[in-house]
């Protein structure tokens, strides 16, 4: 996993609440057995005017060049080209647990997601992939939406170690993040490797459980 420390990036505003993972990456693209290549199909149903299908005739999954774009959809507006920060409304990432949603955002180039609130599983999945999600208050998010709308090329500077985001005016907004997640993200740590450091404790636990609840080890 790539580490995340700071990012100075263009912001794209997605003015919707309850953006679900079905919308972020529709199910027909979940048939891939890889982690990459989902970017072209990020928000597929909103981004394109035709129906996106993973091609069955040898065109790689996620291929999408030449498809008719929905010019009204925010990601298709030229001023947001190359955005690395996505801002949206409440309950972002609700629905299915598909980590493909995070892979699609990342593959497209998004490293930071800002919203007033997130669905738990999506939020968790972000940290496994070097994507930083953080919540700001509804008022702060409102203000950012207004400022982004008003000025083309609007950028934010995100500093994970300091836990704040700096606005073009120089003002900062603070965000909360749990220490363990922060440490893993800052260093791009392999969590499985970290967990295996507890292996002895896990073996001890299993020995005890086998006595207390032998049926759990029956099959």
């Amino acid at each position: 996993m790539d580490a995340f420390t700071t990012l100075d990036g263009l912001v794209v505003p997605l003015d919707r609440a309850n953006v679900d993972t079905d919308a972020i990456i529709p199910k027909q693209f979940l048939k891939s057995v890889k982690r990459s290549g989902f970017g072209p199909n990020l928000f597929d149903e909103w981004r394109y005017l035709d129906v996106g299908e993973p091609d069955q005739d040898g065109v790689p999954l996620g291929y999408s060049s030449g498809r008719p774009l929905n010019a009204d959809f925010v990601l298709n507006q030229p001023r947001y080209n190359g955005a690395q920060i996505l801002i949206a409304r409440d309950n972002f990432g609700c629905g299915s647990s598909r980590e493909h949603a995070v892979w699609a955002l990342l593959d497209y180039g998004i490293r930071v997601v800002i919203a007033p609130s997130f669905a738990d599983i999506f939020y968790n999945n972000c940290f496994k992939n070097g994507v930083l999600p953080f919540a700001l208050s509804g008022d702060e998010v409102d203000r950012l939406f207004n400022e982004i709308e008003a000025s083309e090329g609007y950028r934010l500077k995100v500093d994970l170690a300091a836990q704040h985001v700096t606005l073009p005016s120089g003002e900062t907004m603070r965000f909360e993040i749990d220490n363990f997640r922060k440490a893993c993200l800052l260093q791009g740590l392999d969590e499985i490797g970290l967990s295996l450091q507890h292996a002895d404790a896990v073996h001890d636990y299993e020995t005890k459980r086998k006595q207390d609840a032998p049926w759990l080890f029956a099959s």
């Binding site: 647990s97 738990d120 599983i121 968790n124 496994k128 499985i192 292996a199 896990v202 299993e206």
Partner: peptide, 22 residues
């Protein structure tokens, strides 16, 4: 509870998850 694919790998490899209580 439901988990993402990285956690599927985590559980396969370690039989555990690092979790915060709700």
């Amino acid at each position: 509870f439901g988990i993402g694919t990285s956690e599927v790998e985590h559980v396969l490899a370690t039989q555990c998850l690092i979790q915060k209580k709700s």
